[in-house]
Design a protein around this nucleic acid. Structure first.
Lengths: 242, 242
DNA sequence: TCGCTTATATGAATACGGTTCATACTTTGT
DNA sequence: ACAAAGTATGAACCGTATTCATATAAGCGA
């Protein structure tokens, strides 16, 4: 009989419940305010039960991050599957980043914390591995678009592997997110809408790779409109500047 | 009489002593292993004395980060003062990054932690401000090189401010550092020496800005040699691949 | 349906390390 | 030499993550 399977399912459901509750608490009180006892209470279970699922607080947070990454992947897949030129699909990747940040405004802070040595080493090996596995496709999706571009003749990688270029784009996006969140510096300098700035930077990087530029638009305004259009068409979401 | 001044100087010296000791402990036991009581003991002072200097553990770490940034600035200044074309000086900035990472292999982990919401909000306002002030020149040095390039006709920024472009380069460098340290992903993909990859990425980004390319070398090998040369000439340091 | 065994849940008790603050000591000024 | 002001000290405190002895429930054969 399927009693074992049901057990497992119920266990998984409870885990999801805990993660939901954790996200709620983080939204309300910030990462700093998250307490295991309070979380257990909110979820109407005992603290010990929480620890049947997660080996530590950091383990829980990493599990949460891993779950959220699934959503990011979903967006990337949509961008990747979009019927458009390789260059346009690359821009869609940047837009996916923007949409993701809008949908999961807490993800950045959570993952930033989880990736710190202190937190990372406090999570279980299993959890760490799961997180890395969840992130791997990210890179591969981008790499595949790059390979497409090479095949289509839009891009000559000149000895650099697709993955290497993907890492560059990824570095730029994640570094930008880092800076714009953490330091107050961005506000001191930037005049333009941060999202537009990121997209322009990505465009520049792609140009620098020698990628055949977008056929249509090049002006500031046209790019903005294209971003809006991608937001609606590919992700069914408005991408207005904030 | 200068008794007040001496006092202040002694106080500052002791603070430096604490920071030195902290760095040593971190080198030995990792960030995770750093304990206030142990640190005080190592420095041969009481815990309470430590707290006369730092309002919390995180405050101490941020102070440490701030101090290390001074060294980074020193490197950037050298790069900036180098008698070379704007484009070469920009490459020197990337090399400065590499040299810095080599000299302060712990800085990344420390600052990564300090910038986390959890740690950031646990540091004193004063300390946070000092950190931001210490970082500000970073951006300005890069921005100044970009302005030079525009003035020299090597670059047409097309409406983007120098700061905006500086942020792009910075994002790329810091994002790359982030990825290469934190995730094990880089090792899974990259074939080339990580430093070379970073430099190439920066080159691509600059190319993408429409920056007049390096006059001499373009091949993989020549760029590597140039990096070596900059390391020795500008920073008096070998930049071999590890 | 009733015991018996095994699996699961519980939350009071523990452990740990950052932080405080009453006390002791040192310096300064008269 | 003595009092006042300024510093340094480290044992005690406190908050919170984590554990684990105990209670509860589920499974199962008779």
């Amino acid at each position: 009989m399927g009693t074992r399977e049901r057990r497992q399912r119920e266990f998984a459901e409870r885990e999801a419940l805990f993660l939901d509750a954790a996200l709620h608490r983080i939204r309300e009180d910030g990462l700093l305010g998250l307490q295991m006892s309070g979380l257990a209470e909110k979820a109407e279970y005992a603290v010990g039960t929480l620890y049947l699922h997660f080996s530590s607080k950091e383990d829980l947070l990493l599990a949460l991050a891993t779950r959220i990454v699934q959503d990011y992947l979903e967006l990337l897949r949509k961008a990747s599957a979009w019927k458009a030129s390789s260059r346009e699909r690359m821009l869609a990747i940047a837009v996916a980043d923007i949409v993701f940040q809008r949908r999961h405004p807490d993800y950045f802070r959570i993952s930033q914390y989880c990736l710190c040595e202190v937190a990372w080493s406090a999570a279980s090996e299993t959890r760490r591995h799961a997180f890395q596995q969840a992130n791997l496709p990210t890179m591969n999706i981008v790499a595949r678009i790059i390979e497409d571009a090479c095949r289509a003749g839009d891009l000559d990688a000149e000895g650099a592997s697709a993955q290497e270029l993907a890492i560059g784009v990824w570095s730029l996006c994640s570094g930008y997110a880092n800076i714009s969140h953490a330091e107050g510096l961005l506000e001191m300098f930037t005049v333009n809408d941060p999202n537009t700035v990121l997209c322009r930077q990505v465009q520049s990087l792609l140009d620098g790779y020698g990628w055949k530029p977008l056929s249509g638009p090049t002006s500031e305004h046209e790019i903005k409109q294209l971003i809006q259009r991608i937001g609606l068409e590919v992700f069914q979401e408005r991408c207005n500047e904030k």
